[in-house]
């Protein structure tokens, strides 16, 4: 069974994350609350161990580290996107020219696709409409952001670097 590979490890990781979450959210450290936390985290870990930890365990750490390096660039893009939208909203003539574009990527894994889709939604002038087998449908608010995505492809390159899928 492929699904049961490393089941104990996945239950353990889920349990630790859930218990840490419990401690941070409750903030009370007496015996009653700690016991309740252990029991609840254990139940959650046994039921839903296959949701949190997916994929091979040896690559997960490296990917998380690379994701941390990707986040500052993404935050800067979000600020740019907001200034762009604010300009388009507050300009008296509303310089918009919406269009729908399609393009292909080489990404395949779910996490990479989700990261790219959320990044496209948060960066200037574009929103993801649909994804199927690495093909993206994107709604762009004007001509320049659409071309930045289809011609340039900086973001696809960066996400591919993060998840090591070239």
């Amino acid at each position: 069974m492929i699904e049961n590979e490393g089941k104990g490890f996945r239950i353990l990781v889920t349990f630790c994350v859930m218990f840490l979450f419990w401690l941070l959210l409750s903030g009370i450290f007496d015996a009653l609350h700690l016991t309740a936390g252990v029991i609840c985290s254990l139940i959650v870990a046994v039921i839903s161990y296959d949701l949190l930890v997916v994929g091979k365990r040896n690559k997960t750490l490296v990917r998380s580290f690379r994701l941390l390096l990707y986040i500052p660039w993404e935050l800067w893009q979000i600020v740019l996107a907001n200034i762009d939208v604010a300009y388009r909203v507050l300009h008296p003539k509303m310089p918009i020219d919406p269009r729908i574009i399609e393009f292909d990527t080489s990404l395949r894994s779910d996490f990479a696709l989700v990261t790219l889709a959320n990044s496209i939604t948060l960066t200037p002038g574009t929103i993801t409409i649909g994804v199927r087998d690495g093909r993206f449908w994107v709604h762009a608010v004007a001509k320049e952001p659409a071309e930045a995505l289809t011609v340039d492809g900086t973001m696809q390159q960066k996400v591919a670097d993060v998840y090591m899928e070239w």
């Binding site: 979000i78 907001n82 909203v89 918009i96 919406p98 939604t121 709604h139």
Partner: peptide, 12 residues
């Protein structure tokens, strides 16, 4: 669609 451009980014 264009309305979601404004809300999806600025609200976040």
């Amino acid at each position: 669609y264009t309305r979601l451009h404004a809300t999806g980014k600025c609200d976040t």
